[in-house]
Every structure is written in structure tokens, then in C-alpha cells.
């Protein structure tokens, strides 16, 4: 037996062993020529036998990039290298170089790394293409199982989010103060008008609220709004409606009330109580309120927007007269009539 034959038998035995243990191996000779490749690796290029070619003609070294010769490659023994196939699909591969004894070449074991997800599709690989101890198939199983579970969770999240938005949309309560919100007020106002029930509508605006917010922060502002809402609820009857319709704007609807003397008394009490300083975290917050009131009976037939607008005009008049005032829409109308009467002769 010649020395050459001895080497050939060794190579043959080694290749058979490697076929089983690491089916993506490359066996190269000392000149960098490929002697054998594992069956799975050859599956990546079924029509172009890799054996016989130069390793660096089939694979491009991505990292470390400086290596362009086979002798330089051999110095990377034991280190992890990143490679790519030269032609498309340019699948990324990880590799480990193990030199054979006596400078007789090397075994380079390759694996897909994270590119396995594309590779199994590109090359129609099956479980049989991976060695029994390779976790590749388990990895693929997990990716699919987790993706399916994630998709189910995601669709549940979307539906829950939709339900949450719908619930918020339908909510009638102002989350901060616990009184009704704008939406509830609109609905309630609609009911009163369609049921022909007389009512008084009070539009209340907190004075100096912005300065509380600016000086003591939003937490203080929120506290003041909560206290103000509580006072309004306490000063009204159970079947009256208190609603917060904007930042520091409230509307109170008094069902069946058309007596301006009673209305004015309630407005006076509200302003008195709201003027009492509130203490929040050792800061004294001072606010007050301006109020405008309109009666539904002042309109035939009353419309929601009309009554609201009238209360709004009265509120504006109250603010114009200095803060902490109440103004009735009827007073405003009388005033305008008087002004018109006194203006007329001078024309």
C-alpha cells in the first residue's frame, strides 16, 4: 500500500464520518481545493458539484474580510467565520475551520445560522438534511408555532382595542370628575326637548383655573376640577344633570325649573362655594365661577343649540361684567332691548 492510497482511505473514512455528523462540511486539501462536501451542502447547488473547485471560488469570506488566500484561511483555525455563496441565492453561512494534522488540508463545517429560515425554503430542505442532534428543526418548529400564537394574540389585541374604543365612545361619564360628559349632556338635552319638558340650562366656567394649572401643575388642576364638580353635584337635585363639557366648562341642566329667582339663588350659592380656597398638597388654589343661564321656555320651540348658545351669551356677559357673576339670558335680552330703545332717538 502506497502512502497516497493510505491518505485516500483516510479521507474516505473521514468523509463518511462527516456525512453523518455534520452534513454541511467541506473537506479541502492543502491547496484549498474542495475534496468532498456534505450531502446537505451539495443540495444548495444541486447542478454544480462543489468537489474539485477552489473553496474560495465557491464561497466568499464576509468576515474576516481581509482573508483572500487559502493559507490565510488556514490561520483562522477554531475561529468563527462568516461566508456567502458567490452566486445567487447568496445564502449566508457560518463556518468553523478545523485543520487536518500534518498540514493535509482542513475540514470546514458550515451551518446556516439565522439564514436557515430562508434557506429551508430556497433549497426545499427536509428534516433528513440535518443531523439528528442539530437543533435546526426544533428552531423552525418554534418559529412557526410562536408566529401562529403571536398572530392569534395580535388579532385578539386588535379586537380588544376596537372594543375599548367603542366602549369609550359610548361612555357617558367624564373619567376625571365622575359627572356626565358632553355626549351625555347632548343626549339628555335631546330627551328633554323631544319630551317637551321645560328646563333651565346653566353654563358655568371656572375663573382663574388656568392660573392654578400653570402655578401648581396639572395634578392641582385635576383636583380643583374634581372638587368643583363635587360642589355642583351637592348644590343640585338628584334629577338635575351636571356635565363637564370642556376643560373647565360645565353645564348644569335643571329639569322642570323655570323660576329665575330660584336659579339665581342656586347660581349665587355655587359661586360662593367655588370661591372658597381649596388646598392641594399645601398649595392654596383659588378659583371662582362665572355663570350664564337660559330657560327653555324662552324659545318656541326650543332647540338644543339655541338654548346652549343663549346660555353661552349670558356667560360671556357675566365674564364681561367682571368674574364671579351670574347673568340670566333674559337680563341680557332686556338690556339689548333698552339699549336699542335709547339708541333709536339719537339716530
Amino acid at each position: 500500500m502506497t502512502w497516497g492510497a493510505q491518505v485516500m482511505i483516510d479521507t474516505e473514512n473521514l468523509a463518511t464520518l462527516l456525512d453523518t455528523l455534520c452534513p454541511m462540511f467541506v473537506l479541502v486539501d492543502d491547496g484549498g481545493r474542495i475534496i468532498r462536501v456534505g450531502p446537505t451542502l451539495q443540495k444548495l447547488r444541486p447542478d454544480q458539484p462543489m468537489a474539485g473547485k477552489n473553496f474560495l471560488d465557491v464561497f466568499e469570506l464576509v468576515r474576516p474580510r481581509a482573508v483572500t488566500t487559502i493559507s490565510a484561511l488556514m490561520t483562522l483555525a477554531g475561529a468563527k467565520v462568516h461566508l456567502k455563496l458567490h452566486d445567487t441565492p447568496r445564502t449566508a453561512l457560518k463556518g468553523l475551520i478545523a485543520p487536518l494534522p500534518h498540514g493535509k488540508g482542513a475540514v470546514i463545517n458550515l451551518s446556516f445560522g439565522i439564514s436557515i429560515l430562508d434557506a429551508v425554503g430556497d433549497y426545499a430542505l427536509t428534516s433528513a438534511d440535518f443531523s439528528g442532534t442539530d437543533l435546526a428543526v426544533e428552531l423552525l418548529y418554534l418559529v412557526e408555532a410562536k408566529s401562529a400564537a403571536m398572530e392569534a394574540s395580535r388579532s385578539l389585541n386588535l379586537r380588544l382595542q376596537g372594543a375599548m374604543l367603542a366602549a369609550e365612545e359610548q361612555a357617558f361619564t367624564d373619567m376625571l370628575t365622575g359627572v356626565k360628559n358632553r355626549r351625555a349632556m347632548d343626549v339628555f338635552l335631546g330627551h328633554l326637548i323631544s319630551g317637551n319638558s321645560p328646563f333651565a340650562l346653566m353654563h358655568l366656567d371656572l375663573d382663574f383655573f388656568k392660573s392654578v394649572n400653570d402655578r401648581f401643575g396639572h395634578a392641582a388642576g385635576d383636583y380643583v376640577l374634581q372638587q368643583a364638580a363635587r360642589i355642583m353635584v351637592e348644590e343640585t337635585r338628584n334629577d338635575d344633570t351636571v356635565a363637564r363639557i370642556g376643560g373647565d366648562e360645565f353645564v348644569i341642566i335643571f329639569k322642570g325649573l323655570a323660576d329665575e329667582i330660584i336659579i339665581s339663588a342656586i347660581a349665587g350659592r355655587l359661586i360662593d362655594r367655588l370661591q372658597i380656597p381649596m388646598v392641594f398638597e399645601n398649595n392654596t388654589c383659588r378659583i371662582s365661577a362665572s355663570i350664564g343661564t337660559a330657560l327653555s321656555t324662552q324659545f318656541t320651540p326650543p332647540k338644543a343649540a339655541e338654548v346652549l348658545h343663549a346660555a353661552d351669551l349670558a356667560l360671556y356677559e357675566a365674564k364681561r361684567n367682571g368674574r364671579s357673576r351670574h347673568c340670566l339670558y333674559s337680563t341680557l335680552v332686556d338690556l339689548q332691548r333698552t339699549n336699542a330703545a335709547t339708541d333709536t332717538p339719537s339716530e
Binding site: 429551508v120 425554503g121 430556497d122 426545499a124 430542505l125 427536509t126 428534516s127 428543526v137 423552525l140 412557526e144
Partner: peptide
């Protein structure tokens, strides 16, 4: 048929 790769 069964391929490991979903896409294919």
C-alpha cells in the same frame, strides 16, 4: 408533501 420552509 412537507417542506421545512413555509414560504416554498
Amino acid at each position: 408533501h412537507f417542506d421545512l420552509g413555509r414560504a416554498s
